[in-house]
Amino acid sequence: MDQFHDIRPYNDDEVAGVLENLVETPDFIKTIIGFRFAKWPHWTRGVLNSLVKLVLKRETSKIQCVHDFQMKVADYMERMIKTTTTDVEYRGIEKLTKGEGYLFLSNHRDIAMDPAFVNYGLYLAGLDTVRIAIGDNLLRREFVSDLMRLNKSFIVKRSANGVREMMAAFGQLSSYITHSLTEDHSNIWIAQKEGRAKDGIDQTDPAIIKMFYMSQKKQKVAFPDAMKSLKIVPVSISYEYDPCAFDKANELQEKSTTGSYEKSEFEDIDSIKNGIVGFKGKVVVTFGDLIDHNCDTPEAMVEEIDRQIVANYAIHPSNEAALAMLNGEKSGDKAFSEYIDTCPEALRKTVLQMYANPLIQQQNRAQ
């Protein structure tokens, strides 16, 4: 029996059937039309519906396995990089060994682009792409779940109700991650905490580390040995510009003034879209050092992960300019000053803090 059938990515033999269903899914076709042809007159929708289905059928007929699907994704990544970035740099990737299964524990700024940039770097280096942890809160539309699982995503059941159901979900997740790394020798990408670091402060949630340990704890494996077997590599991803910065600032502002923030139904999907098409400037992905020394407690592991993620975060001129402006100094970066001028006045301090915090974190740890 497949104990991970409801959370794992799709297997090669499932790909063709899933794609056939996707092409016949009205919600999926409607979303593509809305994304690619938003400015076209409404009366063209019927024709576009037929044309999009025809093109998708032709394109998907060539995809027979997960690798084929990811090669299509790589094509889109190349186009996206050309149009939305000034440069993408990978650091530390030469330390990775082909055929090893690594657990890439990453800071989290963008829902889709963080694992996508990690994946693209591994692909360029001739290494295996990652299995991506994604919360079920992002999968309210079935076609989104299908697309993610075709791209080697596995599901984190954040919506589990009650302690018993939650513990069962975390236990299954822990077992799947351990199985992927130690038996399949597959790479895993997972964020250091639930949700994006909207304020620019990167900190690991100890609960993530405790979840990793659950399956091996049942087998009486000592914590340090369990952590070594997972081959944890911290990853720092930094964007010169965050396409979702103003939206994040609005959420932070509303939470600070009213105490809560209610997301609209498809807000996360909009964030994914904006993160893909929005301007990012320079992007730097830094792979840290494999944690192969003893960390005797979850707290010690958290400290080592945070140390590496903060130290390896690539500081951009936008981070330095934001800190200068917060301190009442003149920004030395004209492009960033013009960018801040486009931000609503009420959100400016929050946005500046968001960009300054990675630099502040580095400075605090260096003291």
Rank of each mutant, 00 (worst) to 15 (best):
Asp2Gly: 15
Asp12Pro: 11
Glu20Ala: 08
Glu24Asp: 10
Pro26Arg: 09
Asp27Gly: 06
Ile29Glu: 05
Ile33Gly: 12
Gly34Asp: 13
Phe37Ser: 15
Arg45Glu: 14
Val55Trp: 02
Val55Met: 06
Thr60Gln: 05
Ser61Pro: 03
His67Cys: 11
Phe69Lys: 12
Phe69Pro: 15
Ala74Glu: 15
Met77Cys: 15
Lys82Met: 13
Thr84Val: 13
Val88Thr: 13
Arg91Glu: 12
Gly101Ile: 07
Tyr102Arg: 06
Ser106Phe: 00
Phe117Asn: 02
Val118Asn: 02
Gly121Glu: 01
Leu127Val: 06
Thr129Met: 10
Arg131Cys: 07
Ala133Pro: 13
Gly135Arg: 01
Asp136Arg: 01
Asn137Tyr: 03
Leu147Pro: 03
Leu147Arg: 01
Leu150Lys: 03
Lys157Ala: 04
Ser159Val: 02
Asn161Arg: 10
Gly171Lys: 10
Ser174Cys: 10
Ile177Arg: 01
His179Cys: 07
Asp184Met: 07
Asn187Asp: 03
Ile188Met: 04
Trp189Glu: 04
Trp189Ile: 02
Ala191Glu: 03
Glu194Tyr: 02
Glu194Gly: 06
Arg196Ser: 08
Asp199Asn: 14
Asp202Ser: 10
Ala207Val: 12
Met211Val: 10
Met211Arg: 08
Met214Leu: 11
Ala226Glu: 01
Tyr239Ile: 07
Pro243Asn: 08
Gln253Leu: 05
Glu254Cys: 08
Lys255Asn: 09
Thr257Lys: 14
Thr258Leu: 07
Thr258Ile: 07
Thr258Met: 06
Ser260Leu: 08
Lys273Glu: 04
Lys273Arg: 10
Val283Asp: 07
Gly288Tyr: 01
Thr297Ile: 12
Met301Lys: 11
Arg307Cys: 03
Arg307Gly: 05
Gln308Gly: 02
Ala314Gln: 09
Pro317Asp: 08
Ser318Gln: 00
Glu320Asp: 09
Ala324His: 00
Gly328Leu: 12
Glu329Gln: 15
Lys334Ala: 11
Phe336His: 04
Arg348Leu: 03
Gln353Ala: 14
Ala356Met: 11
Asn357Ala: 15
Ile360Leu: 15
